[in-house]
Simulated assay, not measured.
Amino acid sequence: MGEVLAVILQSRAAGRTFRRGALATAAALALAGCGSDTSKTEGTTIALGVVKGVTAKLAPRKAAGGGGVPDPERLAALAKASFKGPLILAQIEKAGLLTALGETGRNGAVRTFATPNEQTLVFRDGLLTATRGLGNDLMSAKTAAVAALILNRRPGTAARTYRYLDGEGTERPLPMECAVVTGPTKSFDFAGRHYDTVQMDETCRAARQSLSVSNSYWVTGEGTVALSRQWIGPALGHVTIQLVRP
């Protein structure tokens, strides 16, 4: 599991502990995958696959040891039974593993979620702003302008900046201009909850590099990001996040 998400976020917000035993059992049921296409259309298929169940493209029918692999609903149920706080499922596409993360800290709109080994993803209003311990980490991201569009399900243009670690451990800023468009509506049930959402697609381009990034968010009328597929950085690619318990 060490390659999926990583080391604890260095902040007071990550100080609260949670029951690791059963959640670790759930995380141990991670899914080994083989899909790595990061195009916009494929990304939407991958993200919705978390809701519908793992497809053969995302995960083999048998784990390495020969046992069956649980679908996301089963993993969510195991995590909910072991941890009483907010929960998400996350899958980094290049690593091809699905795991549960429990909330370990909250500071206003900023929420930190961690695996049992304290590997973390940090969000502001549902948009990914940092990771820790992945190698080539997303150190921070300025997302306020695009979040105002996405959470209000409103099309428009806005700027955002990623700051990530390159292969030599140097922090690199990546300013981007982003266009947000409204997509189709999507209703789905997951882990005992019903969501009525609108798909919001974000395409960001870096002027100084020939780089284009696509993110997708399934947003409720209350501005909750129920499901998303978000870019971490050039080396790590995309992560799909499914809300289990708000």
Rank of each mutant, 00 (worst) to 15 (best):
L87W: 01
P246I: 09
K57W: 11
L121A: 03
K57P: 10
R20Q: 15
A130M: 04
G96Q: 12
T129R: 06
S140Q: 10
G53W: 09
V110H: 09
R229S: 02
K62D: 14
R61N: 06
K62C: 11
L149E: 02
A32S: 15
G223K: 05
R12N: 14
A28V: 01
G85C: 00
G133Y: 05
G66T: 07
R153N: 04
G156S: 04
N117T: 03
T220I: 00
H238A: 05
G133K: 08
G169S: 02
R153A: 03
V244L: 06
L89D: 01
R153V: 02
P155D: 05
T197K: 10
A13E: 14
G126R: 04
A22Y: 13
D189C: 04
R205Q: 10
P60H: 09
G105D: 12
T182A: 02
M1T: 06
E118H: 09
R20T: 15
I8D: 14
T44Q: 15
A179Q: 11
Q119E: 05
G67F: 12
L149N: 01
L89N: 01
V54P: 04
R74C: 08
H238R: 01
G237I: 06
A28P: 01
M176G: 01
R193A: 15
D137T: 06
G102E: 10
A81E: 07
G33R: 07
G156H: 00
G67I: 09
A28W: 13
L78H: 07
N152T: 14
P184V: 15
I232L: 07
A148W: 12
R61S: 11
A28D: 12
I88R: 00
V146H: 10
L58W: 10
C34V: 14
A159R: 11
P86H: 13
E168Q: 02
A32P: 09
S214E: 11
R154W: 13
T25Q: 12
G102N: 00
T129M: 09
N107F: 06
P86I: 03
A145Y: 00
E168S: 11
A145Q: 02
K52I: 13
K84C: 07
M1Q: 11
S36Q: 06
L121T: 04
C178W: 03
E73V: 12
V51E: 08
D166M: 05
Q242F: 00
A32K: 13
I241H: 10
G167T: 15
A114E: 07
S36F: 06
P72E: 08
Q91K: 13
